[in-house]
Amino acid sequence: MGSTAIVVEDLTKRYGDLVAVDRVSFTVDEGEVFALLGPNGAGKTTTVEMLECLRTPTSGNAYLKGFSIRDPSSVREIKRLIGVLPQEFNAVDNLTVHENVELAAAAKGAKNVREVLEQLGLWELRKRTFSKLSGGLKRRVGIAMALVGDPEIVFLDEPTTGLDPEARRETWLYVKQLKKSGVTVVITTHYMEEAERLSDRVAIIVRGRIAVMGEVRRLVVEYGGKTKLVFEELDGRAESLLRERGYELEVAPDGRTVVKVERHQEIYEVLSALRSLSLDVYPEIRQAGLEEVFLRVIGSRLSERGELV
């Protein structure tokens, strides 16, 4: 990672008595993919829209490449630096793919429409009317509109919400391409898997506050808990042996036996011990992820629709 692309300092947004964003601070390095993960209404969009100079903070400040979002003379410079895919974005229905990207290019004074369309595999579809595209292609056009003009920082606000799993994975590919090209990406999402797969660092935001933030792997190690080996059936001998060797065992609600391990090496040790009893068993391995981190830190799960459950 190189120098810092974004610095956010105590950013706050109030609407009357409602505190939408409460003293949020973080930094994003150049070329990093940073995810804001949280339920609907957590303040993710408000935070990025303040960074996009689309909302005025109540207090605090943020700097994009050193330009303050509160300094009116810097706003135009910031807008030259960024590319934005707004939440639930839908381009103009009766314009073609090319014309929609041309619209964004005209607004940014950019000329690389063809390059972006080719990069995102849209060149062949350039004459297709936007309204006739599939959901995944529509979102790709939105990303093209954000990327035209070679922005240094790209904000993708819930880029895969409402897409089917295939279109979602396809969109992830383009975000990964962005990361490879060295663009700084800030992504908001309520999908754990999305944040886990795409981001270098993640901030879990709930009720306007960042609850926890850091590299995904580090968060999983710190908050995710142990890896679980789930066995269909283990006899008394096997359970005694594993307990003797210091492993923690518990019975899952569905009756299966769960053995908890801390390190990957221990998985082999457990299986080896069971084989010494001539038990040839194959457990389901459940590794901890952001879902466990979220559950541990927030005390709730996130539904598919982004609600706290």
């Binding site: 934005v84 381009a91 607004a107 509109m145």
Partner: peptide, 16 residues
């Protein structure tokens, strides 16, 4: 309609 689609938000995030 442009507001609803986010097109105005996208334009407002550019130097235009």
């Amino acid at each position: 309609d442009m507001h609803r689609r986010g097109v105005i938000k996208l334009l407002a995030s550019t130097p235009v």
